[in-house]
């Protein structure tokens, strides 16, 4: 939503601003006052967040349906996730929410250094979060736990453009050896046949896990993009007590990303 079409238009509007005879900074000409503009922007962002809640909500629904109907498959799944890494990520995001809220207060009270500093820290937290995610994802990928892994690899390697490489078969068969060792670590000894069966049975759990965390990760990246945009404008000194809407609204988006993770963490990592 903050991608290129708006970038062209924002540039035009800023040029407008330089020559426009407005009293308040960045007051759009179709608004009567900064208060009206801020109220509209705030409401608009909340309406957009509503749609994000429902987007993730669909995945939460799928999760609920599968967990209710196949609880045993979800029991196994969480053994392969590190709850402490998940907790670290949770703390990182909560901290980033704090710094984002600080950034908004800083913009409102005209403290530019605090604003820029807070935004940078928020960004770094985002980087940290994605870093931990990368570590987790890599561990899963190495053991074949990602649903559709072969097809994803084939797709990314552009196999679909080459005539000589057919699409891999659908199916899910992670590394049975790894599964057997992992189950043994958690106190359950199984033979090879059982390990293979249990490995295949991890499918609904990891389908949900990757669906939800990947979509969430994409939103974190989008949020980081938005924060970068706000950061650039903060450094240029656009924001102050009369105009801080964008900081506030991007902050709302970032808090939503945190909010969703607050629910993802127990549902995926803390199944007992």
């Amino acid at each position: 939503m903050f991608a290129s079409p708006n970038a062209v238009i924002i540039a035009m509007t800023e040029a407008d601003q330089a020559t426009h005879d407005n009293h308040a900074p960045f007051l759009a000409h179709h608004f009567d006052s900064p208060r009206q503009q801020f109220a509209a922007g705030k409401l608009g962002m909340w309406l957009f967040l509503l749609t994000e809640i429902l987007l993730f909500g669909g995945l939460f629904c799928a999760y609920s349906v599968y967990r209710a109907n196949h609880p045993e498959m979800f029991q196994d799944g969480h053994l392969f996730l590190d709850r402490y890494l998940g907790a670290v990520n949770t703390c990182v995001l909560i901290f980033s929410s704090l710094t984002m809220a600080l950034a908004v207060s800083a913009a409102q009270t005209d403290r530019r250094r605090l604003l820029v500093g807070s935004l940078i820290v928020t960004l770094l937290c985002g980087v940290g979060f994605m870093g931990v995610k990368f570590v987790e994802y890599k561990a899963k990928w190495d053991h074949g736990l990602v649903p559709g892994q072969e097809r994803i690899a084939w797709f990314v390697a552009l196999g679909w453009l080459r005539k000589d490489s057919p699409a891999p078969e659908r199916g899910y068969q992670p590394d049975a050896d790894y599964v057997r060792k992992h189950l043994a670590e958690h106190g359950e000894e199984v033979d090879d046949a059982e390990a293979t069966r249990r490995a295949a049975g991890l499918f609904p759990f990891f389908g949900c896990y990757f669906g939800m965390t990947a979509l969430h990760g994409l939103h974190v990246l989008a949020g980081m993009g938005a924060i970068t945009w706000v950061l650039v404008r903060s450094i240029k000194g656009h924001f102050g007590p009369l105009y801080f809407g964008p900081v506030d609204f991007v902050g709302l988006y970032w808090h939503l990303v945190d909010l969703i993770w607050i629910y993802l963490f127990p549902l995926l990592y803390l199944i007992h």
């Binding site: 649903p147 797709f155 899910y172």
Partner: peptide, 10 residues
């Protein structure tokens, strides 16, 4: 789309 492309079977 994910199911069609990658066989992620919901």
């Amino acid at each position: 789309a994910l199911e069609r492309l990658f066989g992620i079977g919901f």
